[in-house]
């Protein structure tokens, strides 16, 4: 499967041609700032080391301060869907596509939703090892991390 959403639409294009754009807030902004620099960073407690997703200003376990910390970008597919129906803006053509919950290696249960690229949808399996790579989100304002099988399909 080739990724199909990297091309930047022309100015004035149908708004439905763009995927939903993130609205960063005071807590999530560093996540997007890291991606813009080609890094995947997750929120982590500076006191106890707990990774927190979605991110929080203070740790939910010890109330310690948190900061975004780079992760290795590797993990495994915990579960996945193959989206066939045109449902979400920016994903109305070039169906189907695969979205997975990727469980990152840093902590059991620490998951990120992300598209899986570089593999036939029929070949994706729970447990598949994947690695993050970075691509511009159509619209041009954000970079997102998608995941590709580590050893190829």
């Amino acid at each position: 499967m080739t990724t199909t959403h990297e091309e930047r639409p022309s100015v004035g294009a149908d708004p439905l041609s763009l995927p939903p754009q993130p609205v960063p807030d005071a807590v999530t902004a560093p996540f997007w700032a890291a991606l813009a620099e080609g890094r995947l960073a997750m929120c982590r407690c500076e006191h106890c080391g707990l990774w927190l997703q979605p991110p929080l200003e203070r740790c939910r376990r010890c109330a310690g301060p948190t900061r975004f910390t780079d992760v290795a970008g590797t993990g495994a597919v915990y579960s996945f869907i193959v989206q066939h129906r045109a449902t979400v803006p920016g994903y109305l053509d070039n169906l189907p596509y695969v979205v997975a919950l990727v469980e990152l290696d840093e902590q059991a249960g620490l998951r990120l939703p992300a598209r899986i690229v570089g593999i036939d949808p029929a070949e994706v399996r729970c447990g598949l090892r994947v690695r993050a790579e970075f691509t511009e989100l159509p619209g041009g304002d954000f970079t997102v991390a998608v995941f590709r099988p580590v050893d190829g399909p």
Binding site: P19, P22, V88
Partner: peptide, 18 residues
């Protein structure tokens, strides 16, 4: 849903929202 805030901001850009 052309913009997503909250936890949806992590999933929505990947076409994962409903």
């Amino acid at each position: 849903r052309v913009e997503v805030d909250g936890e949806g901001q992590f999933a929505g850009p990947h076409g994962y929202l409903v």
